[in-house]
């Protein structure tokens, strides 16, 4: 089991050094503005911008391509549908009785770029930030919500423990599937209902194990004096540095660019 979105790759880039909070904000802002892009010039600018940031991060291209793989099929299918069925005004060329329109081509390119940019932006966060840092960042960002009794610390703690358990459960699932196959279980049934039913011997032990782990874990945490967020100090303190400033300035430039294009230049 491999989770491609979210494997931290150590590095020394501006992105790696920046505070997780700025990176989380960056990611969210980027996503919103990418979705706001409509015209080809806006797309062009966004793409160039994302590519520049990507180059700064120093993440090898193959990792980005890896995170694109799961959506590649979806992208190809929608592109084909767009090209074949979308009716525009200018015919580019014809395949048999189907006309491929200029507008369809642009639409497809835009769609591909949009998905590409969204995934690259999100991957940049997860590839340059440890899961601990991400949860820390989320905790800090959610902190103001404590006023409305929002349990920011508890949620961040839950997330970080969940992240720690993921590889363990992946191993455990693999082991249980193997053990039940050895006993003669069948997992490759064609029938959907049978298929779901065939996973009962995997799911029950997995849940029983997970509950046991959770119980053990809560006892272990309690015995190490855990009592919620109150009175806790932090080993890793988040600091706003010049890297964050640079990152936020870059983001601001991009956002201003998009806004200007949309309102003043109208391109």
């Amino acid at each position: 089991m491999r989770i491609s979105l979210g494997r931290y790759i150590p590095g020394k880039s501006l992105f790696h050094k920046a505070d997780p909070r700025s990176k989380i904000i960056w990611t969210i802002v980027m996503m919103v503005f990418i979705l706001l892009c409509t015209t080809r010039w806006q797309y062009l600018m966004a793409t160039v911008f994302v590519m520049i940031v990507f180059l700064i991060s120093g993440i090898p291209l193959k990792y980005i391509l890896k995170s694109l793989r799961p959506v590649a099929v979806l992208m190809i299918i929608t592109t084909v549908f767009n090209l074949v069925f979308y009716k525009g005004t200018t015919v580019l060329f014809a395949i048999g009785s189907f006309n491929v329109y200029r507008e369809a081509l642009f639409l497809s390119i835009k769609m591909i770029l949009r998905i590409f940019m969204l995934i690259v932006s999100a991957s940049l966060l997860t590839y340059t930030t440890t899961s601990v840092a991400i949860t820390d960042g989320i905790e800090y960002l959610l902190r103001p919500l404590a006023i409305i009794k929002f349990p920011a610390h508890e949620i961040a703690m839950m997330m970080s423990i969940a992240l720690r358990f993921i590889p363990m459960f992946a191993d455990e699932t693999d082991k249980i599937i193997k053990a039940q196959s050895s006993r003669g279980a069948e997992f490759d049934s064609k029938n959907v209902f049978k298929k779901i039913k065939s996973y009962v011997p995997v799911l029950i032990p997995l849940f029983v194990g997970a509950f046991k782990s959770a119980e053990d874990m809560s006892v272990a945490m309690e015995s190490r004096c855990y009592r919620g967020g109150k009175g806790r100090t932090k080993f890793k303190v988040l600091k706003f540095t010049k890297y964050d400033l640079i990152l936020l300035i870059i983001t601001a430039v991009f956002c201003t660019g998009v806004i200007l294009m949309k309102t003043v230049f109208k391109i």
């Binding site: 440890t130 899961s131 601990v132 720690r164 782990s213 053990d216 874990m217 272990a220 190490r224």
Partner: peptide, 9 residues
């Protein structure tokens, strides 16, 4: 159980 008492990542 070594796995069930390590909290952090």
């Amino acid at each position: 159980n070594p796995d069930n008492q390590i909290v952090a990542s």
